[in-house]
Amino acid sequence: MRLHPFTALTAAACTAVATTAAASWQLSFAVSIISSVLAVRAGVAGRVLSAAAVTVGPLCLSLVVLHGLFFPEGRTVLAEWGPARVTAEGLQFALDLASRTSACVLVLLLFSFTVSVPDLVSALAASRIPPQFGFVLASTLTLLPAIVGSLDRIRQAQEARGLLLRGSLLAHLGALRLQMVPLVQGLIEDAGIRGQALEARGFGAPGPHTSYRHVDDPPGQQIFRALALVLAAAAVALRLLASWPTASL
């Protein structure tokens, strides 16, 4: 069965919210493992895991060093070197937050690497969300690889004219300027032309717009989305009631 883009998005977002509300590293680990297994089954494991490693890796490392060594609230001291104290509470806190962030990042990346962008954009256009949002999303996702290519061509052209990418800091900054100015100029020029073309085709005009692409939204998935939202809201409400700060207010 093909998932409607909104169903996948709701499932991912509700899982992330519920994991944050639950505040338990066991659940976070379970969510991470299930997301990884689903990524393997969808055939996107390599991309999801490498993107997650790039974003979460440095954060986890920094959390372990920061809370592992410096946690003034900690009571159970395991080791001590001068101002640095390794405490059990600090390590627990680092584990809790690192596993929670990893779980949320993995489940959201699983969504973004499995969703079909054309389907998502037509689903957005069919919903009540302003059509401009769908345009920005689709335009950015298609513009990004194009820009990386044109930046490469600009660098080659400037190198052919004698640009050297080494030397002092000042020479480096000069080289950056020679690459950035043509890139920005070209982008803004192109955007102006694209704006006029869109305007000529009635993009900003009010009234109904025709779409050539139709995404099925079976009633079963609509019920699933409503249920997932209710469950996530319940998890949030439970957490808010359980940890409402009373003393400090």
Binding site: A21, A23, S24, R239, L240, S243
Partner: peptide
Amino acid sequence: ANGPVSFSAL
């Protein structure tokens, strides 16, 4: 601890 921080995070 994890619980109160989870409240603030939400």
